[in-house]
């Protein structure tokens, strides 16, 4: 039972991160019908930014909570700026092109960013400091949930609830939903679609950055390749939940995380990725629209 609980928590933790990244895929897909393959790289860049900022701050003698907040905020802003710029450079000029062109551009962007970080940093794993705070409360519950698992699950839940509220109740959220349903009609009601697209990339990138920060702190090491791995898993999660669907991305992330966790725990840890991609293949064959597919979705 204890082992089951550990696997369950591990799956939730993993799944929350997948869900955070999957949201970026699904939001961009909802609005542009584009798979932004460079999205995983944004997550990786956020982790590196946080590492660099945290190292500098630590050298300046700062510790604890202030490092986390400063490094976090800077990493999120930096990643959001990256997402914004990637869209302007790699996708906007191809807005009128056939659907294959921006897809190839996305793959190119992904390869470029990976190699850029590999050259600028190293190809080795770098140790990532544990930025997540310690507290008596977290110690007191550590018997049944690890501190970083707890923080990751709580933070992701809060962020996802905030996103849902933003989409549901703000003017920007309405415009994003309208754009996803009918881009031309949204423009006819006065929505500047280019601006909405930019904002979608900014928000998606910020979510990925939060995921990057949490997981890097949890795992304790990063390299230029983590974005590709996490990106492809999150993409699987988005497809699993029904790409274009916001609740689908959240659900897909959790299902995928749990499946991986139980699969590695009860079958074999050698097959970690096999579980994810078996699920991807099965869902594409059996239910290509995903769990919350087209018909029942709230898309953005």
């Amino acid at each position: 039972m204890n082992y089951f609980w550990d696997l369950f928590l591990g799956g939730l933790t993993r799944g929350s991160i997948y869900a955070l990244i999957a949201l970026g895929y699904t939001m961009v897909y909802g609005i542009l019908q584009l798979i932004n393959f460079a999205h995983g790289e944004i997550y990786m860049i956020a982790a590196f930014t946080a590492l660099i900022v945290a190292s500098i701050l630590t050298m300046q003698g700062l510790t604890g909570f202030s490092v986390l907040i400063l490094a976090g905020v800077i990493a999120i802003l930096y990643a959001a700026a990256y997402g914004f710029t990637v869209e302007k450079i790699a996708y906007k000029p191809l807005r009128q092109a056939s659907r294959l062109s921006p897809l190839i551009s996305a793959i190119g962007m992904s390869i470029f960013l990976q190699n850029y970080v590999m050259l600028a940093q190293t190809s080795d794993f770098l140790p990532f400091p544990n930025l997540l705070p310690q507290s008596e409360f977290l110690d007191s519950i550590s018997a049944w949930i690890g501190p970083s698992d707890f923080i990751i699950i709580v933070t992701s839940s809060v962020v996802m609830i905030a996103l849902s509220l933003l989409l549901k109740f703000t003017k920007m959220g309405r415009a994003m939903r309208a754009t996803a349903q009918d881009r031309e009609m949204a423009m006819l009601t006065g929505v500047s679609v280019n601006r909405i697209i930019s904002r979608t990339f900014i928000i998606g990138s910020a979510l990925a950055a939060i995921g990057g920060l949490l997981i890097a702190s949890h795992v304790g090491r990063i390299n230029f390749y983590i974005g590709f791995n996490a990106g492809i898993k999150a993409f699987t999660a988005a497809v699993l939940g029904g790409i274009g669907s916001i609740p689908g991305a959240m659900l897909g992330g959790l299902v995928l995380g749990l499946a991986e966790s139980f699969g590695t725990g009860y079958i074999s840890s050698d097959y970690e990725s096999v579980f994810a991609f078996t699920i991807l293949i099965l869902i594409l064959i059996l239910k290509p629209d995903g769990i919350l597919g087209r018909s029942s979705q709230q898309k953005v």
Binding site: R177, A178, Q181, A186, T189
Partner: peptide, 29 residues
């Protein structure tokens, strides 16, 4: 008819106010 079918009647009209209002991303957050 090209309504935003998945949104409420009120939201459909509120979208029309987009051109006449200002708040942006920071306001939303």
């Amino acid at each position: 008819i090209r309504l935003f079918g998945g949104m409420t009647v009120l939201e459909n009209v509120m979208i029309g106010r987009h051109a006449r209002s200002k708040s942006g991303i920071l306001g939303a957050i």
